[in-house]
């Protein structure tokens, strides 16, 4: 798997390169600023890009902007954005192109190596990897007067994992239940939220995220 990496802090950049290489990924280019990232993404067209939000020269959301610009040119280019903090606003912008292959994780998650690598692979295959913190922020808006309140605790848990982008198998593993049980929960959730059932995992994730993002008072 060919990866483009964008991280301006040398310490973290070297660590990430080592981590990715140890898991059989090939880092075709590691850059440390926004303009270089955009150029690397469009020339290499990697299988996936791992991008830090804050990059030189502006030290603001340069990485995010470069990623969005690259996806304008190459629709569906898989990008995993890492950040010291997560903002719903940025999650929404990343998801707005609606084609999947998007990840948005706190940098902390790198320390859980197995899950981090799994998230990269998921994004590379067109899936979604949303940080649990994004999901919990989204769920705040469904505290009251939303169909989400009618879910059982178990179903809420499944909804959270589903919104993060996990597959049925991964949800089953995380909750120590069978895939069949997960399937049943998902069917019930879609019924209660009045969403169309989707066979395709990626489309299902995006539908759930769009539902949560819209808030409880949808027109």
């Amino acid at each position: 798997m060919r990866v483009v990496l964008a991280e301006d802090l040398a310490l973290l950049r070297d660590g990430l390169i080592r981590l990715l290489q140890a898991h059989g990924m090939q880092v075709v280019e590691a850059v440390d600023n926004g303009p270089a990232l955009l150029r690397a993404l469009t020339t290499h067209r990697p299988d996936v890009a791992v991008v830090d939000v804050r990059l030189p020269p502006t030290f603001t959301d340069e990485g995010l902007r470069a990623a969005l610009a690259a996806r304008e040119q190459i629709p569906g280019l898989p990008i995993l954005v890492l950040s010291q903090y997560v903002e719903q606003l940025y999650a929404r912008e990343l998801l707005s192109q609606g084609s999947g292959g998007i990840g948005y994780l706190l940098k902390d998650r790198v320390s859980d190596v197995a899950q981090f690598i799994e998230a990269i692979r998921r994004v590379a295959t067109g899936g979604t990897a949303m940080d649990p913190e994004v999901i919990s922020q989204l769920l705040v808006r469904h505290r009251d007067s939303s169909p989400v309140t009618s879910l059982t605790p178990r179903e809420s848990e499944v909804l959270g994992y589903m919104a993060e982008g996990l597959s049925n198998a991964a949800i089953a593993a995380a909750m120590f239940v069978t895939e069949k049980a997960v399937g049943k929960h998902i069917g019930s959730i879609f019924g209660k939220l009045n969403l169309h059932p989707q066979d395709d995992t990626n489309r299902r994730v995006l539908a759930v995220l769009a539902f949560l993002d819209a808030g409880p008072h949808r027109p």
């Binding site: 030290f59 010291q84 719903q88 606003l89 922020q137």
Partner: peptide
């Protein structure tokens, strides 16, 4: 950080979303 990134307009938008 979002205030540094996006100024008042973006940061208020982010606040509203939360």
């Amino acid at each position: 950080p979002v205030l540094a990134d996006r100024g008042l307009a973006g940061a208020v938008q982010a606040l509203a979303l939360a």
